[in-house]
Amino acid sequence: MTAAVLEIRGLRTWFFTRAGIVRAVDGVDLEIAPGEVLGLVGESGSGKSITGFSVLGLIDPPGRITEGSIRFRGEELVGAPEARLRQLRGAHVAMIFQDPMMTLNPVLRIDTQMIEAVLAHRDMRRAEARALCADALRRVGIPAPEERLKAYPHQLSGGMRQRVAIAIALLHDPALIIADEPTTALDVTIQAQILYEVQKLCAETGTSLLWITHDLAVVAGIADRIAVMYAGQIVEQGPAAEVIGRPLHPYTLALLESVPSHNRRGQPLRQIPGMAPSPLALPAGCRFRPRCSRAGERCHEPPPVSMPEAGREVRCFHPCNRPPPEKTEAAPEPDRRISRPSSRPSPGAG
């Protein structure tokens, strides 16, 4: 097996606020192989975006990485000097943000914002950089790129702006792109297009992709592997088809059951009871315990990560491939039926 592009070990990114310490990311382990697409799935506030920003060293105070290691192609990024991180950002690790309306500076033209991205890493004349930018725009399917370069962000549609952001991310053929919910703010039809483009372009260039999303349907369509994040921790990780087809962690199962699908038409959608815990007051032991129908006495201890099957990791005492514990705290008998969507949800059905 080739060495991982990105290897995150025991990452903790905490925010030291007046109200207390927010453990946004609390012991995350991830690995991304070259050319691999890893889907990082979780609810809002689960720490998935903070994980992405941690890789780039873009955590704003009062947050900081307190522990752990992030290795990019073997190079340690935690504690690396800012100058080195700046060299890597954009050139080797690029990022695409959630809201295309907000990622481009409203008072600067597209060409200004693209050319500066080129010149930040390459020594070349402006005219050459400009030609490079036009090519990049063409690559992401933007017609008449020369004209678009002269436009201001507000003159472009949301989908167009996200394409520009993707073009910027692809400018230097990075080894890794971190995409932080890049399709959430877009129309469903545009979502599908953008998904397709990014997938295609990454496959062409062999770029690894960390796709952060709350939308399992989106990630099912493009990810090779999936990591499910809950309250700052990875609770389950494995090949995409297996995680979706046969989830091991009760949280993953609950997430899948809350996605509308064809084979349960007419039935009410299942909801996950309760609310995601406040990161200021995380429950002791398993963090999903208060909302979990399978929780038992042991779950007051923090569950270790186990590897019940090859290539699959789960952080649970009572994974779904085993019978639930005898003494359940929750009154209703948990539904043992494992959801198997007959067809994989199409991308864009979110």
Partner: peptide, 25 residues
């Protein structure tokens, strides 16, 4: 703002982030 973070994520120097991206706004 996201665009300031995005400018940093592009690897643009801090000086340019402050003097161009922030100042003009």
């Amino acid at each position: 703002q996201d665009y300031v973070k995005f400018a940093r994520a592009k690897g643009v120097s801090e000086r340019r982030v402050v003097l161009v991206h922030m100042l003009k706004n």
